[in-house]
Write a protein that binds this DNA or RNA. Sequence first.
DNA 1: AATGAAAGGCGCGACAC
DNA 2: GTGTCGCGCCTTTCATT
Lengths: 161, 161
Amino acid sequence: MSMDIIDRKLLELLQADATMPIAELAQRVNLSQTPCWKRLQRLKEAGVIRAQVALCDARKLGVGTTVFVAVRTNQHTETWAAAFTQAVRDIPEVVEVYRMSGETDYLLRVVVSDIDDYDRIYKQLITAVPLYDVSSSFAMEQIKYSTALPVRPAVTVTNNG
Amino acid sequence: MSMDIIDRKLLELLQADATMPIAELAQRVNLSQTPCWKRLQRLKEAGVIRAQVALCDARKLGVGTTVFVAVRTNQHTETWAAAFTQAVRDIPEVVEVYRMSGETDYLLRVVVSDIDDYDRIYKQLITAVPLYDVSSSFAMEQIKYSTALPVRPAVTVTNNG
DNA sequence: AATGAAAGGCGCGACAC
DNA sequence: GTGTCGCGCCTTTCATT
């Protein structure tokens, strides 16, 4: 799938605001509506654009506190991993989960209303699946949160690196 | 701002798919189009719904690798904090930044194509602002990533906790 | 006062050029 | 890639309880 500078500009715009009408998108990239629309179809079909969603205000939903949870396991088995995966996917307060290299086996981002609320999720988690070690760090402030991925040309290979 | 069970259901639906036409949204919450539409307007004006965006596939954009960067500073000043904030906001590969409690002062999530690419961002970061300590952990696998925040009733206070 | 039904504006989606 | 046409959705208004 080719991705020229116009496609990248479209992705940039749509990642910032997906309500923008095609007419406006088109003129921002100096195109008429039809080719612009065709590019969007192509990007969707290729799965580059994988969804269009509403973003909510975490504080207004009463989950303004983020907790990072570092998890270690002593059961390095496929069945444990499957159970853990299922458990975290089933808890909506757990919004991000990564399997890590290094000391920590898994890193979770959990959104809650306060410390007591976190304790509720913590208990839910350790009840659902056995954890060897759990270490929680609270975020004091969210300085940046972006769902927009960087859209840039394929890294150019040069000889003077 | 009151938020009944219908509003919460609407948020749940829109956080999963914001392309859903009002007619369908309406019938999913057992309402007709107008009252449903009015609720959406209200949620937008109140800032509960803060944006509507396109989500892209990280791998297909060549940034399928996530790196968590723990940063410590020795300059606990307002000016340093402002410079740091500006620096991370200006780097699109840095998608999330939190000010933490505990050992780590700041935790960053960075998306890159590979280790070499991360080194590029790392250099960019330490050039922009002085950092006392930087510790990077690579994610092997993204097990969960959701932009949908949990939408639940205000925590009911009971006497038998 | 809030819901359910109906009409107009308009942006999306397929054709020919 | 550009311009045109029709369909269907969003938005508003009116009638209703």
